[in-house]
C-alpha cells in the first residue's frame, strides 16, 4: 500500500521517539500487578456488538433458565387437579348429607328388604376398598322410607363417608 511521504523533521521525530525511553515507577507496576491478580484468570471478554443478532438459546439453557417457572406450573396443575377432586367428593358428600342412601339390585330386592341400607354384591376382589355392584342408589328420608333415586349406575367403589350406613 502506498505510504505517505513524510518531511525530514517528521522522519527525525520518528527516530528520536524510537530512542526515547520512559522508566516505570513503582505505581506503574503496582497497577499492572493489581490487573494481573484480578483479571489474569478470567476469560478474555467476548466482543459484544449490539448490532449483532442474538444467538438462539439452547433447549438445555432454556430449561435451566426457566425451571422454577416449570416447577411452579406443575405445582399449579397438581393443585388444580387436587382441588377439583376435593370439590367432586364434597359435592357428592353434600348431596347425601343428613340422609341415608340405599343401594339396591333392583325393584325386587328393594321390596323385599326396604330397611336394609345396602344390598350389594362385591364383584372385584383384587383392589383395595369395598367395590360394589348395584343398579340404583336411593335416598332414605328421616323415617327410613325410600325418597328418591340418586344414581343409576353399575359398579362403584364405595367410600365409607358416602355409605351412610348409620
Amino acid at each position: 500500500m502506498k505510504s505517505t511521504k513524510h518531511t525530514d523533521w517528521e522522519n527525525r521525530w520518528r527516530e528520536t521517539l524510537a530512542e526515547h525511553q520512559s522508566i516505570p515507577t513503582a505505581e506503574d507496576w503496582s497497577g499492572m500487578k493489581h490487573l494481573l491478580e484480578t483479571q489474569a484468570n478470567e476469560p478474555v471478554e467476548a466482543i459484544v456488538d449490539p448490532n449483532l443478532p442474538k444467538l438462539p438459546e439452547s433447549s438445555t439453557r432454556r430449561i435451566l433458565k426457566y425451571w422454577p417457572h416449570s416447577l411452579l406450573f406443575l405445582f399449579l396443575l397438581g393443585g388444580i387437579g387436587l382441588g377439583l377432586r376435593k370439590y367432586e367428593v364434597e359435592k357428592a358428600t353434600n348431596e347425601v348429607k343428613g340422609e341415608s342412601i340405599h343401594f339396591s339390585k333392583g325393584a325386587d330386592s328393594r321390596a323385599e328388604n326396604p330397611s336394609s341400607n345396602i344390598d350389594t354384591t362385591p364383584v372385584i376382589n383384587n383392589i383395595k376398598g369395598p367395590v360394589y355392584r348395584f343398579d340404583t342408589v336411593y335416598q332414605l328420608d328421616a323415617a327410613g322410607n325410600l325418597s328418591r333415586e340418586i344414581y343409576t349406575i353399575d359398579t362403584a367403589i364405595l367410600y365409607p363417608e358416602l355409605r351412610g350406613d348409620h
Binding site: T7, D8, W9, R12, W13, T16, L17, E19, H20
Partner: peptide, 9 residues
C-alpha cells in the same frame, strides 16, 4: 525544518 528536526523527545 532544521529547528523542528532538532527537538528532543
Amino acid at each position: 525544518s532544521s529547528a523542528l528536526a532538532n527537538l528532543n523527545a
